[in-house]
Design a protein around this nucleic acid. Sequence first.
DNA 1: TTAGCCTTGATG
DNA 2: CATCAAGGCTAA
Length: 244
Amino acid sequence: MDQQSGLMSLNMSAFDLSPGPDGSGSGGGPSSASQQYVPQGAAYQCAPDQQPFGYANLDTSYLFPTGTGEPGAYLPAAATVCDQTDTKDVIEELCPVCGDKVSGYHYGLLTCESCKGFFKRTVQNKKVYTCVAERACHIDKTQRKRCPFCRFQKCLDVGMKLEGESYKLYGIYIHKLLCRFVYLHRYQNHNSFGNVGRMQARLQSAAEMALHHAAAASAEKLKVWLRIETAVCNPPATFQQLIP
DNA sequence: TTAGCCTTGATG
DNA sequence: CATCAAGGCTAA
Ligand SMILES: [Zn+2]
Ligand SMILES: [Zn+2]
């Protein structure tokens, strides 16, 4: 009983930390605790001392929830939202891989048409790329062609994955909710408090749907929710922090 | 190879 | 019927 009520209460009360546009001091201290997480480049540390360079990143295990599960999120170059003026927010409308305009949901999240096609070709043809640099090339709209390796790595980092297998574990609602957590983290990282408030509203909406679907679901989903309970106060930078 | 466009199949 | 996303197609 306590646990269930905890899930419910956390949902609403936790989101309550966005009463006003400030969104700053609201709920309490924990809002800034997210800084403890280090999103920058964390995703790329996946291969600290594997092969020196040019190792294959096309491991199908990344595409499915086997073991480690979700890949980490990535801080996109699109985060050039540094311009306070662009209240258009909507990091969600920018491809998290290259920053181009999204054309819809592709392989789990909103991406542009080119990255969708790139991901498709890579997976279908089992392409294996190599990076001649340090496997940390910046990917944006103009440079996305330069290094397919880092581009695909980024695709994996932001959570692109094959349909079917990916959602059957936790469900589409939780998956999208996790995406929003990452977006929220991004906004907080850029001190875009206006967007933080907006994203919290979106997040709450997603959480309600996810909770509704998770309520009558398997224990697996509930375990995820226990993770999310913590994430509400400390928005994670990567999926791995939610689904270990 | 890329990326825009098209067709297909699923869903409501 | 409309919408959406996966996959196919093909001109640069
Ligand atoms: Zn893209
Ligand atoms: Zn690279």
